[in-house]
Amino acid sequence: MAEQKGWKDIPIGGTIVEAGSAREYKTGDWRVLRPVYDRSKCIDCMMCWFYCPDLAIIQEDAVMKGIDYYYCKGCGICASVCPKSAIEMKPETDFAEEG
């Protein structure tokens, strides 16, 4: 979550006064299950990239680079569509100490 402002420091009426502010909205903290990616199994088919509804798959020149946990809500679609089972969904509680 972006830093939260007090009532004196925000525009009135709930109006959003700049474009693209959803970029600052951390949806990653909704996640209950975390997709964990195994590079050794990945064939860079980009199925996860096509299917991810939150643009949370990071790729460079069609090479899978990992998952953007700031936005990933943990829906599990990437793990489901992966033909090589290179993505495994693990409980967030397993990572509690990492934060």
């Binding site: 939260q4 009532w7 925000i10 009135i12 959003i16 006064v17 474009a19």
Partner: peptide, 25 residues
């Protein structure tokens, strides 16, 4: 020139602050 969004979803993170602004007004 200055695009804005009216009436967006406003949950537990900011709705209360917007109500406080109404009280002040």
């Amino acid at each position: 020139e200055h695009p804005v969004t009216y009436g967006p979803l406003d949950l537990y993170d900011y709705y209360f602050e917007h109500k406080r602004q109404q009280i002040e007004a």
